[in-house]
Every structure is written in structure tokens, then in C-alpha cells.
Amino acid sequence: MAHRWGMVIDLDRCTGCEACVVACRAENNIATVGEEQAGLSRAKHWIRVERYYEGEFPDVKVKFQPVLCQQCDAAPCETVCPTFASYHTGEGLNGQIYNRCIGTRYCANACPYEVRFFNFFNPVWDKPLHLQLNPDVSVRTVGVMEKCTFCVQRIKAGEIQAEAEKRELKDGEIRPACVQSCPPEAMVFGDLNDAESRASRLANSRRRTKLLAELGTRPKVTYLQRDSWHGDENA
């Protein structure tokens, strides 16, 4: 059976540390845009940690919510793309073919999660910062859309390795950069077609929610809501 990659993010564990944000930047050759462009809201963060306050001092609460491409099964970004640059792969991923993208930015409008980022200029790496670039990931040019790929290069590498060794992939063997780095292990990645995978099991937790589920995009990222302490339930 084909794989169906999915992710579970446990908001009870996420500490808002931003390790995932930097890991993704390092892995996926996401250029920094500099102060001026960042000031114009052109910074690119394939994953971001949304922070929301609730209530007023002293009864304040904070919620962190990492948001990356939800790899929707019914992805609005795909139907609107005129060139199939945003398309559905055989493994259910929302693929983004940079070479095919002509930069209509329609997909970014259609994506309810605002996880698509546009290259307003050619990316610049002040030499020799470019030496860090990951050769497994293409560098995007001006005028194209980019976004989280679920670290497809890691998925492919894992699948190819397993095939070369003539074995099945092990659960947890493939870990996107954000998942790999996350200190409290708030993120779990795995095959949703394998009912026994950790991701599948967690995705059935009583705390499960989907972001903007009401829109019918059928995301493959599941959020486990913050739990309460047992003492609080009696209070």
C-alpha cells in the first residue's frame, strides 16, 4: 500500500521554542530576506509558531500553535493553480514544482492557512553563507511560490534507502527536519496508512483536532489540543 504521510503536533508539549522554524530554514535552503523586506512582511517561514494570548492580566494564558503546510487531501491551492505547479503527489503530499510555477500567487490566496511564501526577489546569500546550502533541496528563484514540502527530500531518501536494502520502512525512520529537531517531541511524523504507526495512533487521540476543519480541506496534520491537569477538572 502506498504511504500516506501525516503529522501530529501535540500542543500540550510544544513550548514555542522555534527550533522547528530554524531547522526548516537550515534544511530547506530558505533564504533570509533581511530587515527591510521582513518589515514588508516578505520573510519566509515554511513553519511558524503562532502565539495567541487569551484573557487579561493577571489571568492570562498563551497558546503556541506551529503552523506548516497541512498537506490537505482536498487542497484548495491545487485546484486553482493553472500550471499544476501545486499538485497532489501519489503519496498524498501537496507537491510544489518550482520550475512550473509562473507566480500567479493564486494558490497562496486559496490556502486558508497562509503557509505559502512568495519569492519577491531572487534570494541572496552573503558569501560564504551559501556554502551551507543543502544540495538535496533546490534553491528557488524570483517569482515562484514555495512552502513546506514535508521535507520530501528526506522522505525520498528514506524510501530509496529502504528499497535498496529490500525492506519495509520502519515507523519513525523518516523524520522531517522540524520533527527531528523538536526538543519536547511535540511533532510526530509517520504513515497514516499504517494503523500501527505512532502518528496514526496519536491522530486518533481524544485531543485530536484539525486546523480550520470546517473548511473541508482535510489536512494531514492533526493537532492534539492542550490537556488540562487532572486536578483542574474537579475545580
Partner: peptide
Amino acid sequence: LPWMQEAPDPLST
């Protein structure tokens, strides 16, 4: 480090 400068601060962003 530009990666640190351009990463949003967790609370203030």
C-alpha cells in the same frame, strides 16, 4: 546570525 535575527521571537514575534 541572520537566522536568529529573522526568526520571530516566540512571544512578541
